Simulated scan of single mutants.
Amino acid sequence: MRVGLTERQQQLLDTWLPSAAIVRDHSWGLIGTLVLELEHHGERYIAKAGDDADHHLAREIRAHRNWLQPWTTRGRAAELIHADEDAKLLLTRFLPGELVEGTPYEWAPGTYHEAGELLAAFHRQSAVPDDNYESRENERTLAGLDKPHRIAPDLADLLRATIEAWPTPPATLVPTHGDWQPRNWLVDNGTVRVIDFGRAAMRPAYTDLARLAAQQFRSEPSLEPAFITGYGSDPREPEAWQRARLREAISTAVWAHQVGDEAFEQQGHRMIAEAVAEIAL
């Protein structure tokens, strides 16, 4: 079964699922994470394996161990079977469903109402005050601007000056998915399920709305109220949300440039332009 697995990863899979066969390779391709659908004794599983550069598998393993119960107990997320953080390997039971992205479900308000309900249950698990979150995020964004990117130099200088002048009020952190969008939702007979927890971390609740706001909410305005109704209330405090939107925009443009995803990079540049216009730099 090698397909890019390290020797240790292969040994672990041979122990966990002897003689398993690959059914399908679901790997994204832009990064080094392998996502393999396996079959063993008539049961299907998903194995995720990280390469040397990976820093997502540890987050995903922690999410499965600590936060996914509100979803797994309802069949809305995959059950963890085995994990080895040192080997960067995760094995879960296969979660049935069709990817929402690219289907009519992506533009159905009912999908977003259900996704809002799911996210609210996830966020409600815990809440932790953090006096340093805003300053850490500012430092991370400024470090991103020091990496290779195609943001215009004058604009990059303006973005740096703006971020350096921002206030750093205390924040409340909750478990977040980190990439909450139809690309990471499945639908099975009308039921929405959730995949991919490689960006899961403690953050403010509103950060999980950033990608929807930049994409589906922007294209189809009816989806946003459906989502907020399902969630129960709008977690976005205006000034914190503006800061989050600009950070997300910069991160998108920089990261997409680094991995060569030109379409996503262009989305990042559009997000920067929109965020700049909104806060009237």
Rank of each mutant, 00 (worst) to 15 (best):
H257P: 00
T72N: 01
A53N: 14
T141C: 14
R270P: 03
Q125T: 13
P70K: 00
D234A: 05
H257V: 02
P235S: 00
P148M: 15
S233C: 09
L99F: 06
P204R: 04
E79L: 04
Y112K: 11
I31H: 06
I163G: 12
Q267S: 11
N132H: 08
S27F: 07
T229V: 05
E117F: 09
E224D: 10
Y112R: 01
A83V: 02
T73E: 06
D54W: 10
A108K: 07
E85K: 10
V259F: 08
E7F: 03
F197E: 00
T73M: 03
Q10L: 15
T73V: 07
A201N: 14
D14F: 03
R236K: 06
L17A: 04
H113F: 01
W185A: 07
A205G: 07
R74G: 01
V276F: 13
V192H: 00
G4H: 04
E220Y: 06
I61D: 05
R74P: 02
V174Y: 10
S219C: 12
D84R: 02
G110P: 08
H113S: 10
G29N: 09
E224A: 12
G75I: 13
L173K: 02
V3G: 11
Q181M: 04
L17D: 04
L246H: 11
V35T: 14
G97H: 02
L223M: 08
A275V: 13
R243C: 05
Q216S: 08
I46F: 04
Q242H: 02
G260S: 07
W16G: 11
L80H: 13
L13M: 15
G260H: 02
P18R: 12
H149A: 05
E43Q: 12
I228S: 03
R199N: 14
G50F: 08
A20V: 07
A156I: 15
G198C: 08
A226P: 12
Q125K: 08
K88Y: 13
E79C: 03
P18F: 09
A87Y: 09
K147W: 09
T73G: 01
L155D: 11
T103F: 04
R236L: 08
L80M: 12
K147A: 13
M271W: 15
D130N: 14
G268W: 01
P238Q: 03
S126L: 08
Q69C: 01
P170A: 07
Y231C: 08
R140V: 15
D51P: 15
P225Y: 09
P96V: 02
I46S: 03
G230M: 05
A120F: 10
F122A: 06
V259K: 07
G260C: 06
L223Y: 04
H41L: 04
T73W: 00
E274M: 14
R245F: 06
L158Y: 14
A256I: 13
K48E: 03
L155N: 03
P225M: 06
S222F: 02
I46H: 04
E265C: 05
Q215Y: 07
L80F: 13
T252R: 10
R247N: 09
Q267N: 11
P18L: 11
G190Y: 06
A161C: 05
R218Q: 15
A53W: 09
M1Q: 14
I22A: 11
F122K: 00
T252P: 03
L118M: 10
S19Y: 14
L209K: 04
L223S: 09
P104A: 14
T6H: 14
T6Q: 15
W241A: 02
